[in-house]
Design a protein around this nucleic acid. Structure first.
Lengths: 228, 228
DNA sequence: AGCCATTGAAACAAAACTGTCACAAAACTG
DNA sequence: CAGTTTTGTGACAGTTTTGTTTCAATGGCT
């Protein structure tokens, strides 16, 4: 499924231009020239990024931005704002309000494309491909981050390697020795029971109250993460 | 050295008029009425901006534009296109192809000057798009300035390069060695811990009280810049 | 020369993380 | 069910890693 982008721009010609270009790049584009309608459209189906003209009719872009940031569901959507070159004041307020990037008019479509792509890669590594997923758990090897249900988790270095090791081998039972070899290194002379302790620490770190434990203990054999 | 401008216009009278005006403004002007020749001239010596008539003989302006955008070396040169008033269709296509601005004939030389100047101003300090943005932090590589929330910050040379390095690689964990290679140079024999010290100096410089620290420490791995 | 900003390193402090133990709890065995 | 084996937990002391301060060296500038 292609990333969805919402264009909010009341200059019809420019709006069409952007839509055309973004579509050509493979994005799923919707557009509107009205701030109110933009908010509705976002609520109806959240896009992966928003291109927002700062000077639109009815609702100022800055207000649209603020509204979006206020709602938990939409707060993390990347926003690129379009400003006229002289609107220095707006630019600053825009960044303060939570826009993620800005482009000053006039601009080349090429430039905007590049910005949008950069933002998407930054905010949604999963759209870029690299990212390990298991159920509602996401692990990003590049940024060393782990989230569950969208919420960031903090893992120590060993827990991180351990989780990664498990997700990469989801569905298989892993013996303590295998785990030691894979996570600590083949030549480690560490007690097997130490694995137990780290499994516990990992469980503690990823299971918020109410969550189901994705790690299954296999008595007399080891541990496993099950496919759903 | 004065900014160089290439005028591509086959109406001899108009071409002279533009050349005369631009020269008077202190620009270093070259001109041609032929699309093929224009491409050669650009390749020979890249101008800082191009004024391009959409309706020239031989090669259509749109094609010249496309050619220029295709080559990495010329892709970022600002282009102002000149169109007849009724050529609405061309205007759209022109912008799609990558022109940065347009002026419809007939126009006043004064107006064109203003547009060119605006484009150059934009492309000089930072090519307008070269401004690196991360959250509310702006870094202008050309003018060597950094701002956060609109407020100017003072960074030493190393801190500047460090911040730039991070913003350009936002979202990835960077090891101390990578940072040394990228910021100090591949052949530096500097202690890895020195990175820590500069990270601290950078943090001190960009985090005003109340700000959130954009630099995340990844234990046993390095540092990373993240949203939030 | 004198002053000031910058820089890399060293040293110490503060955190964060690790591996083991000892014991409790749970799961098997016959 | 009593005995055995295996796993879960909490505590802890030692290590590793990172944060911070300090300092001497360097180099630009006046």
């Amino acid at each position: 499924m292609n990333p969805g982008i919402l264009v909010v721009e009341d200059d019809k010609a420019l709006c069409d231009l952007l839509t055309w270009n973004l579509s050509a790049e493979g994005y799923d584009v919707r557009s509107t020239g009205d701030g109110e309608e933009a908010l509705l459209m976002v609520r109806e189906q959240a896009p992966d990024a928003i291109i927002l003209d700062w000077m639109i009719e009815q609702v100022p872009g800055i207000e649209v931005c603020r509204q979006l940031r206020k709602d938990r569901d939409t707060a993390r959507i990347p926003i690129v704002m379009l400003t006229a070159k002289s609107e220095e004041e707006d630019r600053i307020r825009g960044l303060k309000t939570g826009a993620d990037d800005y482009v000053t008019k006039p601009f080349s479509p090429r430039e905007l494309m590049a910005r949008v792509e950069a933002l998407l890669r930054r905010s949604q590594p999963s759209l870029a491909g690299d990212m390990l997923v298991f159920g509602d758990i996401e692990l990003d090897p590049a940024s060393h981050r782990v989230r569950r249900g969208g919420e960031a988790l903090h893992l120590g270095p060993t827990e991180f390697r351990l989780l990664r090791y498990f997700i990469e081998r989801a569905g298989r039972v892993l013996s303590r020795q295998q785990i030691l070899d894979g996570v600590w290194g083949m030549d480690s002379d560490i007690d097997e029971r130490t694995v137990d302790v780290h499994i516990r620490r990992l469980r503690k770190a990823i299971n918020r109250p109410g969550d189901t434990d994705p790690i299954r203990t296999v008595r007399a054999a080891g541990y496993a993460m099950d496919d759903e």
